[in-house]
Nucleic acid binder design. Sequence first.
DNA 1: CGCCAGATTGAGGAATATCAAACAGAGTGG
DNA 2: CCACTCTGTTTGATATTCCTCAATCTGGCG
Lengths: 235, 235
Amino acid sequence: MIIKRSDCLQCRMRDQSIFAGLNTEELCSLGMEVQDIEGQHGDFLYRMGEPARYAYTLRNGAVKLVSSLESGQEVIVRLLHHGDLLGFEGMQGEHHRHSAIVLAPSQLCRLDLAELQRLSERLPKVRAAILQRWQDALQKSEERIIELGAKRAEARLATFLLQWAQRYPQLRSLPFPLTRTDIAAFLGLSTEHVSRIMADFKRQALIQEQGGQLEILKPQNVAHIAGMPDEHKSD
Amino acid sequence: MIIKRSDCLQCRMRDQSIFAGLNTEELCSLGMEVQDIEGQHGDFLYRMGEPARYAYTLRNGAVKLVSSLESGQEVIVRLLHHGDLLGFEGMQGEHHRHSAIVLAPSQLCRLDLAELQRLSERLPKVRAAILQRWQDALQKSEERIIELGAKRAEARLATFLLQWAQRYPQLRSLPFPLTRTDIAAFLGLSTEHVSRIMADFKRQALIQEQGGQLEILKPQNVAHIAGMPDEHKSD
DNA sequence: CGCCAGATTGAGGAATATCAAACAGAGTGG
DNA sequence: CCACTCTGTTTGATATTCCTCAATCTGGCG
């Protein structure tokens, strides 16, 4: 894991970050120390139970938030892509509720939580941005409760693949650094069951996989399995 | 459903509300219209898809937040008790993502969202209180994801009963206005399966039920089934 | 090549859903 | 007070979904 100082002024993600809407002067006057982090597959950004000192913005790559139970079982609580925030549960001065583990080579910004706290008091725009992310996280979280509570394995997996694809709108072929075990830990299924369904999908030529890349060949059919209302039939 | 004007100055819940920490003068100067609402079993406070105009504080009683799928299936996204907030997803000017349905006779405060918005800009204490609730909601939501993803029916139900009991710390016998179908919609199970497990628990004399009241006779055993670490053995 | 982690497949069994029926209790109208 | 209905619960039988265990297969890599 490589850590160096970051120059927010040059950042290409700035307009999607929580500092969006601030002009250059405001940004300069933040006086905030921001680190630039490069993470490789398997790196821990932080571990469950540690006191939270930093928040992160994921500029690029993919990260999983994992909660480990006493049984040894691991559940993936959230999956993060470019633009997502993590570590913010520490804003209220708490400990990390999950471990953050890098899935694919990732670039992140690391912000000091205490500084961020002060900053958000001072700048309504930053505050609003953070609140918005918080709300988004809650919404997604509730959507997953519905998935887990109401749908069967096939439908859950189909939904999951479509949602993953939505995060890479331009690409036909998606980066897909998850193992079957990861998917299982996210969907509340066994590794084998996920493998079976994925193999089925492939046999039906709904999807295609090669070298960490995934392609959804028949999005409409997948959406149908997911139990989605038929949106965007023209796609 | 009865609606009348409310007098926040007299409110007994004030120190647990989002207006906690404000002194009497500040509270008077809010200039905020607050309604006092009495809801009966089955009343809708709002419906999924409606534009959000109000937020609510549940002072007393119980409310369920329900999301209805196209299949007709219903999932209970959250269960609310005294002190909980609802309807705040509208703070960002959106529509309600679920329907709020009264379970037991309830008293609520209804706040105008636009006014609340302005208020939270002005008063850091109010803002912080709301942010805190938001974080709590996210945390609980993530805990449920873990429950649904990792635990089996018995353990889920046991956890659920204990968490319900936690909301009524003083009482041996708890108000319990949920039907088996409600519990099932909350835990992602079938009504019959919930009924079977509840009946089992009763036969094992772990719990006892009568007239909408529930008593947990052997909390430790229930906690064991829930897969909890053995906290508070002295209880 | 051998090795290893991950993926796939199969067989059997456990957990849960579904369908159907019986049952209990709380009104409600006679 | 009793029959009646309605809603929610319980129970049983059966089907389905999903998990577990074990074996095999695959591709990357030293």
